[in-house]
């Protein structure tokens, strides 16, 4: 049973003339929290709909636990829980009723008393009043209903599509806690998001897509390897020598009393050369910041933005 919870290979899907997915690859391994990043319209939601068997791919394979996402949808859905980015609920049902309805679709049996306890605990965590009719809920509260309904069923795989949109920072923290818990319990998670800090905090691996195609995927460490570290250093000697090292970018120097402050960014592969050069300059202080996902992200979308800027 070492089937990957999610295995997507070369997925294509078009709506009319619009190519939503164009050769997408995505894998979530057992026990892994996988981040799924991309700008709006990149195809994240379409990918998830294909995974849920709501939409049929034009070509390629979308498998959940080794089963076909379209053909075996109902059986596979017993093993997962999904939270959409924009939750719509039945207006005349209360939040509590919607949670129970969704849970009952999922599990026909199960320990009633235990379920009730867990529901009460989750409602308390998320500070949700279950007696209100869904039509009176704000977007954030509708989101909480779907989150509670997902965490309540205890599946092997969680699929979240921008789950924290509409939640305030406190509730985001509660969400993060709950994901940590299911991660510790060995569950797998697919987390689609464009909030980088969320992904950075939670995810083991990241897949970045753009225009329906996977442009980067790997563990956070692997991806960071591709990027630059920001270095800020205080030196007593003239730092001109550093600027000429290949792989050093964006150098700014600030001359102070007795020492010069140099800020620069370095390709990770060239870090050794920079450190060697620095030792000769009488270093008084040094900080190095690892690359954030933000920078990683900007690198992939930056070019597109630049193009747009040029065409304006």
């Amino acid at each position: 049973m070492s089937q990957n919870p999610v295995d997507i290979i070369d997925l294509h899907k078009s709506f009319g003339s619009v190519k939503a997915l164009d050769g997408l690859q995505l894998t979530v391994r057992p026990g892994e929290v996988a981040g799924f990043l991309g700008p709006n319209g990149a195809g994240k939601s379409t990918t998830i709909r294909v995974l849920l068997g709501l939409q049929r791919p034009d070509s390629g394979t979308a498998k959940l636990f080794g089963g076909d996402a379209w053909n075996d949808a109902v059986a596979l859905h017993r093993r997962l829980a999904y939270v959409p980015g924009d939750v719509s609920l039945w207006p005349n049902l209360t939040g509590g009723e919607a949670i129970d309805y969704l849970t009952r679709l999922h599990t026909t049996s199960g320990n009633r008393a235990q379920l009730k306890r867990r529901k009460a605990a989750l409602l308390e965590h998320f500070e949700l009043d279950p007696t209100k009719k869904a039509r009176t809920y704000s977007k954030g509260n509708r989101q909480k209903v779907a989150l509670v309904a997902a965490f309540l069923v205890d599946p092997e795989l969680y699929i979240f599509d921008e789950p924290t949109s509409g939640l305030d920072p406190l509730m985001e923290a509660v969400f993060t806690d709950n994901v940590q818990q299911v991660k510790n319990a060995g569950k797998s998670v697919l987390l689609s998001s464009h909030i980088l800090s969320e992904v950075e905090k939670l995810c083991d691996t990241v897949t970045i897509i753009r225009s329906g195609r996977t442009v980067e995927s790997g563990t956070l460490a692997e991806l960071r390897h591709l990027t630059r570290t920001t270095v800020s250093v205080l030196v007593a000697q003239d730092p001109a020598a550093i600027t000429t090292i290949p792989g050093v970018h964006d150098v700014t120097t600030t001359v102070g009393s007795g020492a010069t402050r140099v800020d620069l960014s370095v390709d990770n592969a060239r870090m050794g050369a920079v450190l060697t050069a620095l030792t000769r300059l009488d270093v008084r202080g040094l900080t190095a910041t690892p690359p954030s996902l933000e920078e990683l992200f900007m690198r992939h979308y930056g070019s597109e933005r630049d193009l747009e800027a040029v065409s304006r």
Binding site: T94, G96, T131, K132, K133
Partner: peptide, 25 residues
């Protein structure tokens, strides 16, 4: 609007019960 039940009645299980609930009024 009035407030409602925190837990669904046992009968609210399955799609038929849900649709009926929405349309009974």
């Amino acid at each position: 609007g009035r407030i409602g039940r925190a837990d669904a009645a046992p009968s609210l299980a399955g799609p038929f019960a849900l649709v009926f609930r929405q349309q009974r009024g």
